[in-house]
Design a protein around this nucleic acid. Structure first.
Length: 394
DNA sequence: ACGTATGATTTCCG
DNA sequence: CGGAAATCATACGT
């Protein structure tokens, strides 16, 4: 309604049809006494103004009559022109929404998470790669749980179906509105530009809905991630074979139980765990071993025996392979048994072991780990193993 | 149920 | 940034 009056005022001014204010009923009456064209226009305007007071049927008939009026096209175009100048120009400036940083962030994350990326052709591999590339976190390859992937795929599927629904609804609604406006544009001043604007508004609304979808999808992914990544929540002990491999390495490198990056990778592969898990394990092992060497003595001996036996077997096999006919294998085996024997001796009696040569020097050597000023070869006299010896710090 | 073992995380340091 | 130390939180054996 307000628009209507504004249009009217605009019309009078622009068209120069009348100097007086059309909104004033008196002026309309005054116009009737004027010349023929003016009277005609005034007549039409009065009819338009009065149309709301009439009954529905009357109004319908009146509308039709007005529609067929010979002045209608001219009047209509003028109204359009005015409307464009007044109504549209008012809000026409605050357009141009820049690519929302928020939605960009969401998009990036969904892409990185493998939710919105390319379709599931490569499947988990692509997703995992994307996640790894995005996160770069040490936890990357630990997300290989099939459960995780299944849940992620589920989220992905929901996301895509929802997105599709939104898009469809958006285009449907846009079409509907456009048809409606086109339809109405026959009786009401609506310019194509206005339709365009309307479409843009609709799209903005729908994209804000999309953002909500993206937001909740991100949230779901984050929750899923945290649930699966927080291994503390669902800690599993490594399997026996894995701990065996790790312990073997630890005790056979007791003088310097710091596996290199390559060694860690190798161990990780052998144990079916990640490199960071290997690092954790060695970190824990070192500190716990150092804290209470006595407690680990048995274990140390066990693995010393194990490695000794392995060494014996290996050397026996090697010698056999070297010279199948040689009777030397017996002596090789014996050497293995010898080491084994000496190793078994170690149980309990670590005092005499210093200098036994197998591994003992390292056992009591935890103080020299990480100590560049004190190479392992020149070990300081070991403290009482059972008691908690002084911490290196302080 | 409880204590211990153990993998992971946090904090601090060089 | 890698490691030590402390700490957390769960698994596991009793």
């Amino acid at each position: 309604m307000d628009d209507q009056t504004r249009m009217m005022t605009g019309l009078t001014g622009l068209g120069g049809l009348a100097q007086a204010d059309v909104g004033d009923p008196d002026s309309v009456r005054k116009q009737q006494s004027l010349g023929q064209p003016q009277q005609d226009i005034g007549d039409i305007l009065q009819q338009i103004m009065a149309i709301t007071d009439e009954s529905l049927d009357e109004a319908q008939a009146r509308k039709h009559a007005l529609n067929c009026h010979r002045m209608k096209p001219a009047l209509f175009s003028v109204l359009c022109e005015i409307k464009e100048k007044t109504v549209l120009s008012i809000r026409g400036v605050q357009e141009e929404d820049p690519p929302d940083p928020q939605i960009m962030r969401l998009d990036n994350m969904l892409l990185a998470e493998g939710v919105s990326g390319p379709e599931k052709g490569g499947g988990s591999a692509a997703a995992a790669a994307a996640a790894a590339a995005a996160g770069g976190s040490p936890t990357d390859s630990s997300i290989e749980h099939s459960d995780y992937r299944a849940k992620l795929a589920q989220i992905r599927q929901i996301y895509h179906s929802e997105l599709e629904k939104y898009e469809q609804a958006c285009s449907e609604f846009t079409n509907h509105v456009m048809n409606l406006l086109r339809e109405q544009s026959r009786t009401r001043p609506i310019s194509p530009k206005e339709i365009e604007r309307m479409v843009a508004i609709i799209h903005r609304k729908f994209s804000s809905i999309q953002m909500q979808l993206k937001q909740s999808t991100c949230e779901a992914v984050m929750i899923l991630r945290s649930r699966f990544l927080d291994a503390r929540r669902k800690r599993r002990n490594f399997n026996k074979q894995a701990t065996e491999v790790l312990n073997e390495y630890f005790y056979s490198h007791l003088s310097n139980p710091y596996p290199s990056e390559e060694a860690k990778e190798e161990l990780a592969k052998k144990c079916g765990i990640t490199v960071s898990q290997v690092s954790n394990w060695f970190g824990n092992k070192r500190i716990r071993y150092k804290k209470n060497i006595g407690k680990f003595q048995e274990e140390a001996n066990l693995y010393a025996v194990k490695t000794a036996v392995d060494a014996a077997n290996v050397s026996a096999q090697a010698s056999q392979a070297n010279s199948p006919a040689t009777p030397n294998s017996a002596s090789q085996l014996f050497r293995g048994v010898d080491t084994l024997h000496r190793a078994t001796h170690l149980t309990g009696g670590y005092e005499e072991l210093s200098g036994s040569g197998l591994y003992t020097p390292h056992c009591l050597d935890a103080n020299s780990w990480q100590d560049t000023t004190n190479p392992p070869s020149v070990t300081s006299p070991p403290g009482p193993p059972g008691s908690v010896h002084s911490d290196t710090s302080n």
